[in-house]
């Protein structure tokens, strides 16, 4: 059976009917048509589905939608500014070639955005630890590290 869910996604209030055990990833992709958030594993391993709830990155593939009632959810589509300009981190991902196939990119951007919001200048080790819940099969992580470094070097996200 479906239940009503009210939440805020990328600053915009949303009200949708969801299945009682629906996960947030499905609500975002299939009901709100925000397909930037990706499904990679359905078990909270790969991190492609990462969104930010409040200030916290979560795996939306295993997060019950109804547990997000009243929450502020941010997805990759909400990272760019109002005029469409990329965030510093998005820009850095483009410039340091941290994107290859790009399927993991939204998840990494969300995790690392949350990191930079809580820690302005993380060390390489802190960056690696923070993104342990995100898998990239293409890049071998080095360019992603470099992207974060370049943002931190500029004095914060």
């Amino acid at each position: 059976m479906t239940q009503e869910l009210s939440l805020e996604v990328n600053g915009i209030p949303a009200r949708v009917e969801v299945d009682a055990d629906e996960v947030l990833l499905d609500t975002l992709r299939d009901r709100l048509h925000l397909t930037g958030t990706k499904r990679g594993c359905d078990e909270g391993e790969c991190g492609a589905c990462t969104v930010i709830i409040g200030r916290t990155p979560v795996h939306s593939c295993i997060f019950p939608s109804l547990a997000a009632a009243g929450a502020q959810v941010r997805t990759v589509e909400g990272l760019a500014g109002g005029g469409g300009e990329l965030s510093d981190l998005q820009r850095a991902f483009v410039d340091t070639a941290a994107v290859q196939c790009g399927f993991c990119t939204p998840g990494f951007l969300m995790t690392l955005t949350a990191l930079l919001e809580s820690e302005a200048s993380p060390s390489d080790h802190e960056v690696d630890e923070a993104m342990a819940g995100n898998i990239c099969r293409c890049t071998g992580y080095s360019a992603i590290r470099a992207a974060v470094r370049s943002v931190v070097g500029e004095g914060g996200a």
């Binding site: 925000l34 397909t35 930037g36 958030t37 990706k38 499904r39 997805t75 990759v76 589509e77 990272l79 760019a80 990329l86 998005q90 991902f93 483009v94 410039d95 070639a97 994107v99 790009g102 399927f103 990119t105 939204p106 951007l109």
Partner: peptide, 21 residues
């Protein structure tokens, strides 16, 4: 040159459409 890939912008915006999308 280390020119950024042409699809990077769409990919960091979450607007690149994959087969599953």
């Amino acid at each position: 040159l280390g020119t950024p890939r042409s699809d990077a912008d769409a990919k960091v915006r979450g607007l690149a459409r994959y087969g599953v999308d």
